[in-house]
């Protein structure tokens, strides 16, 4: 049986279809394993060889990787949610209800998007702690630490802008409380110390697109949540992963 399977595998990897996709044979030799890493788009984010110390689960707890994976889950579920959601005061809440009661697996989709988002905030924070406690921000990784902090801020902003979209009481008032803070910005906010701007021109107004939370705010947060912030996050993650390798791979006691 095993022999047969082996022969089947040998035949399979020699077929034209297989070799057109994978460009190398069965990864059971060192050569083919190396080729697997460098020939595969996703795998080639990795160096060919990694420090044994760096792949110990209890060193990184895979937290950066999990953050990244949750971001991908958010992208996929988010795109699916966009099929059903319209960012207007008239429809937004109705579409939520439809997701819950009318769309097949709609509720599951929304749950997954929501819990993965909370999970991502958590894993990013814990990832930061692991990086701190292993001293992995020290030279030459100072810059990547700062890229990481920006990613943390972006993650929080992504979560926060998404929070408004269901347009329920929870969303509306949480975002009211949150954006009210902008009013208190020194100089730039209408109610902050040394304010110079009116309620119609201050930084909170530009955040909301109106004096109170309105349809303008909903549209703004929608565009930020679905386009601007994810693009920024993807860009920064690109730099982040690039720098992990340029800075000498995962930090280690050497």
């Amino acid at each position: 049986m095993i022999k047969r399977l082996k022969r089947f595998a040998e035949w399979l990897v020699r077929t034209q279809i297989w070799s057109s996709i994978f460009r190398q044979g069965w990864p059971d030799t060192e050569r083919n394993r190396i080729l697997t890493t460098i020939n595969t788009l996703v795998f080639h984010l990795h160096p060919i060889k990694v420090k044994s110390h760096g792949i110990k689960v209890k060193y990184t707890f895979c937290l950066g990787g999990i953050s990244f994976f949750l971001f991908i889950v958010e992208t996929i579920t988010g795109v699916l949610l966009m099929f059903y959601y319209r960012p207007t005061v008239e429809y937004a809440y109705q579409d939520m209800k439809d997701l819950e009661f009318a769309v097949t697996f709609g509720l599951f989709l929304r749950n997954m998007h929501r819990w993965a988002a909370h999970g991502m905030v958590l894993t990013v924070i814990i990832h930061m702690c692991r990086v701190f406690y292993t001293g992995s921000y020290k030279p030459p990784r100072e810059y990547n630490w700062c890229v990481g902090v920006s990613l943390l801020v972006l993650t929080l902003l992504l979560s926060f802008t998404g929070y408004l979209l269901p347009w329920d009481q929870l969303a509306y008032w949480a975002v009211t409380v949150g954006t009210n803070m902008a009013k208190a910005t020194p100089v730039l906010g209408a109610e902050g110390p040394f304010h110079v701007l009116s309620e119609m021109t201050d930084i909170c107004f530009y955040l909301r697109g109106s004096v109170d939370i309105s349809e303008n705010t909903l549209l703004r947060f929608y565009v930020l949540h679905c386009i601007a912030l994810p693009l920024a996050a993807v860009g920064l993650m690109g730099i982040h992963f690039w720098r992990v390798r340029k800075d000498g791979g995962i930090s280690g006691p050497l």
Partner: peptide, 24 residues
């Protein structure tokens, strides 16, 4: 567990307390 969904947003009905998402 289901993601929370309360009543439709209403600018005139302020809930008490209005809590931010946990990370804030």
């Amino acid at each position: 567990a289901n993601a929370p969904l309360e009543e439709e947003a209403s600018p005139t009905k302020t809930p008490n307390p209005a809590k931010a998402p946990w990370y804030f």
